[in-house]
Amino acid sequence: MITLAAQEGLTIDWANMPTYNTIMAVAVGAGLIGLVQLGRQLRTDPTKVSTEGWAVTFGLLGAILAATGLHMTLTWPLAAGGFPFDNIIFGETSLGFGALLLGTSFYLWKRGAAALATSRPVETLARVAQPVTVFVGGLGLSLLAIAVAGVKYELFAAPPQEPISGEFADYPLVEAIFMSGLIALVGLGALAFAFLVNRVVNGRSTAVWARVTGWLWAVSGVLFLLFGAMNFFTHIGLIVNTM
């Protein structure tokens, strides 16, 4: 519950306001960066790819996102203090990305080495990934819808009691545009990835789509990672200032 007292300012009942989109943001950023790095290795020198290393990496990140995303998705609303849309924005999307990373981890652990040993490893992996591009593309469209909703309803604005982000409390569109733009970048990258994989399978030119996907996910991944790391400070500050 959130209350506002004239003398004390904003007070939040944190027992009813659990939040962990801090670790979610860091894991999402690391996952996106990891996918770009893996893609670059596959395109330049597949022999240098450590399938076990990437399997462990994606497994750890996928477990974090799937666990937190599943809890947030099934606990409605997770934050009873007034932010039920967070269940959709952060919970459902993290669950979807986490499940994809876990699936990727499992395949690389069990079959990754065999796939890289084929004469055309990139094409082999693309054929494995092609069926899931429908879901990836659907998530991409969903992220674009969230981005539009973020600007239309001016979501993501931090209260003035939150350090750094709270400086823009009187200008809710600032953070709404930043976060919506960041989410849109990931969504566009997901759509580009779906096109990329299908072009690889069909033997068509992929250079442009590979660069577009890589840049979209690299930029958004770095921003998510840094923003999530910063939020460990800002969210702690918000808790201290509103207890």
Rank of each mutant, 00 (worst) to 15 (best):
T3R: 13
G9L: 14
G9Y: 01
W14K: 04
T22A: 14
T22P: 02
I23M: 08
I23P: 03
M24W: 05
V26P: 00
G39S: 09
D45C: 05
D45F: 11
V49M: 01
E52K: 06
E52A: 09
T57W: 09
G59H: 08
L60E: 04
A66F: 15
A66T: 14
A67S: 11
A67V: 13
L70M: 13
L70E: 01
L70A: 12
L70D: 00
H71F: 15
M72S: 09
T73R: 11
L74R: 05
W76I: 06
D86C: 04
D86T: 15
I88Y: 07
G96A: 15
G96P: 00
F97L: 15
L100W: 10
L101Y: 06
F106R: 12
Y107G: 00
L108W: 04
A115I: 08
A115F: 00
R120Y: 02
R120H: 14
V122G: 03
E123M: 11
L125M: 10
A126C: 02
V128G: 02
A129N: 07
A129T: 05
V132Y: 10
V132L: 10
F135L: 15
G137W: 01
G137M: 10
G140V: 05
A147P: 04
A147F: 09
F156P: 08
A158E: 06
Q161T: 14
E162P: 04
E167M: 12
F168T: 11
P172Q: 10
P172A: 07
A176L: 10
I177F: 01
M179I: 12
F193S: 14
N198H: 12
V200H: 00
N202P: 02
A207L: 09
V212E: 03
T213G: 02
T213S: 12
L216M: 07
W217Y: 00
A218N: 03
V222Q: 01
N231K: 08
T234N: 08
I239F: 09
M243T: 03
